[in-house]
Nucleic acid binder design. Sequence first.
DNA 1: GTCTATAGATAGATAGAC
DNA 2: GTCTATCTATCTATAGAC
Lengths: 179, 179
Amino acid sequence: MDVRSRILEAALGLLAESGAHELTQPRVARAAGVRQSHLTYYFPTRAELMQAVARHSIERLAGELAHAREHSPSQVARGIAEGSSDKRTVRVMLGLVAAADRDPAIKRALRRFVGELRGIMAPALASGGLRAEPECVAFFHSVVIGCAVLQLARDNSEARAEARAVLQMAARCIARGKR
Amino acid sequence: MDVRSRILEAALGLLAESGAHELTQPRVARAAGVRQSHLTYYFPTRAELMQAVARHSIERLAGELAHAREHSPSQVARGIAEGSSDKRTVRVMLGLVAAADRDPAIKRALRRFVGELRGIMAPALASGGLRAEPECVAFFHSVVIGCAVLQLARDNSEARAEARAVLQMAARCIARGKR
DNA sequence: GTCTATAGATAGATAGAC
DNA sequence: GTCTATCTATCTATAGAC
C-alpha cells in the first residue's frame, strides 16, 4: 500500500476509534508510521487532509455497501442496520458532518454520498417488500441516522433495543400495500 | 449575571455558532470577557468545562420546550420542528453527542435529557392526534434527529424540503387510528 | 519521496500576588 | 474572586538537505 493510502487508512482508523477530535497531523502521522512533515507533503494543509479523509471514508462506506449488494439485497439491509449500530461507523459519519459544517467541499462530497447511498438502499428496501420511492427512502434513511446518533449518545442496551424496535416500526410504515 | 453563567453562555454561543471545535479555554474566556486563567478558577479542567456546558445546554433546550408547553402543545410541536431545523441547535446537539462519546458523565446527562425531552414531546404528539406510546415517541424522536443531522450535513433547500416531507410522513405513520 | 529541523501559533494548566 | 505571569504540551506549517 502506498504512503498516501496508509495515511488515509490511519486517519480513518483514528476517526472511527475516537472521533474527529483525534484527527491531528501528529497523531495521523504516528499511526501511519510516517513523519509529520512527510504527511504535509501529501496533504499540505489540515483542510486538504480532512477533505481526503472524507472522500476516503465515503468511498469505504459506499464500497462496503456495494460489496454487500453483490450478494443479496437482504445483505444490504443488514449492512445498513449493522453500520448504523456500529459505533465506529457512526463516529466517522458524525465527524464528516461536523467537518462538512465548516467546509463546503466536504459538504458537497457528503451530498453526493447521500445520493449514492440511497441509490443502493432503494433496491434493498424494494426487495424486502418495502416501498422505494425517493420519499420513502429519505424517510428510512432519516430513521436510520436518528437511531444511530441516539445510540452513540446513550450507548446502553436500552438504546440498542429501542433502535431495533424503531427501525422495525419504520419498515412497517413503508411496507408495500400500507396507507 | 454572575461570571460562571457568563462563561457558560459564551461557551454555548460558540458551540451553537461554530461547533465543538471552537470550545477551547482561550476562546470561551475571550467571548465571556474574562482571563483564561480566571476561567480555570471556575472550571479547573477542560472536562469540567465541557460537563458544565453540557448541563447548561441541556437546561436551555429543555427550558425552551417547557416554556413552549405553557402555551400549547402545538407550540411544543412547532418548537421541536424549529429546533430540529435550526443549525445552531443541531450543532449544540452534535457537540454534546461527540462529547458524550468520550465522557461518561456527559453521556449520563444526555440520557436524562432524552427522557425529559420525550416527556415533553409525548403530550404534544398526543394533542396533535398522534399516538404517544413510548415506542411512537422514540420513533418520532429518531426521525427528528435524523432529519436534523441530514439537514446540517447538506444544508440546502432540497434538504430542508425533504426534512419537512419526512417529518410529515412520520406523523402520518403514528396518526391515531392507523395500525 | 523522504528526511531533519524548526518556526509560530494555540491549547491546557498551575503558582502565587492582591 | 480576580489578576499577572508562566510553563509545558500540542498543533499547523515551512525551509531545505538528501
